Amino acid sequence: MSLEIRIATSADAVDACTVLRRSIVECCAPDHRHDPAILEAWLGNKTPQMVACWFTSPNNFALVAVDAGVVVGVALLTRAGKLALCYLLPEAQRRGAGTALVEQLETQAKLWGIKALQLHSTTSGQAFFVKQGYTEAGNVRSPYGVETIFCWKALDPSCLVAGDPQVDPKRKRFCNCNGA
């Protein structure tokens, strides 16, 4: 794999949209269970026009993973500290692209002064995010009808206090230290 991670541009929107849609349909089947209503809701905003808007928003930082000239992954961080997207083509999984995307988003979050990241993981992505150091903090139903796992990760050691799962795994508590 000749992997390149770079900032996404609106010119990447069509290819990134393909990554999102294929990843959801093919890799997240255990989550949507091929339910047409769930798929329609989940894929509804995954259009090239919407993806281009996400990429150009000053409130977002978006990356693409490119292998041999092909976009194989897409990830997006919001200024609010949410890792909103992290999707790979099925054939790009378990080859380092996801880890590289998350690491670069975390670096950007630190540059923005974000102390902790949060995300809603599918069960399909759960093991990946745990491996990246994210702590599970309960289940949340998505607007499109999929049960997700709320996860977070402290980027600043001041977020780690007694009772936090990264210090005390028996107690689950979300660090909300990004607030003003």
Rank of each mutant, 00 (worst) to 15 (best):
R79K: 14
A8Q: 08
C151I: 03
H120F: 14
N176A: 07
A68H: 09
L39A: 02
R95I: 05
Q166H: 08
E40F: 09
L83H: 00
V74T: 09
S2F: 12
V66F: 10
T122N: 11
C159I: 05
A13K: 08
V70P: 01
C151W: 01
W152A: 02
E4A: 12
N59Q: 09
S121W: 03
L119G: 03
V25Q: 04
G163C: 08
L119K: 06
K153P: 00
G125Y: 11
G163R: 11
A65W: 05
F55E: 01
K46F: 07
A180T: 13
L63G: 07
G163A: 12
M1V: 06
F174M: 11
R79N: 12
L85E: 11
G113W: 00
H32G: 04
A37S: 11
T9Q: 06
L155C: 04
S2E: 10
Q118R: 11
A84M: 04
F55Q: 03
L89F: 06
T107L: 04
V140N: 05
K172L: 13
A52K: 03
V70A: 12
Q49W: 12
T56P: 03
P157D: 14
V19C: 14
K82D: 15
L101M: 13
L77H: 04
I5D: 00
Q126P: 00
V146Q: 07
G145S: 06
Q166T: 07
C151M: 15
S2P: 03
V14W: 13
D67G: 02
K172R: 12
L119A: 07
Q93N: 05
R6N: 06
F129H: 13
A92D: 01
Y144S: 01
P48M: 09
A80S: 14
P48F: 10
V161P: 01
A29V: 11
A116C: 02
T18W: 10
T148Y: 04
K153V: 00
S57Q: 09
P30N: 13
G69M: 07
A180P: 15
R95D: 06
V130C: 08
F129T: 01
R21I: 09
P157Q: 15
L88T: 08
L105R: 00
W112F: 11
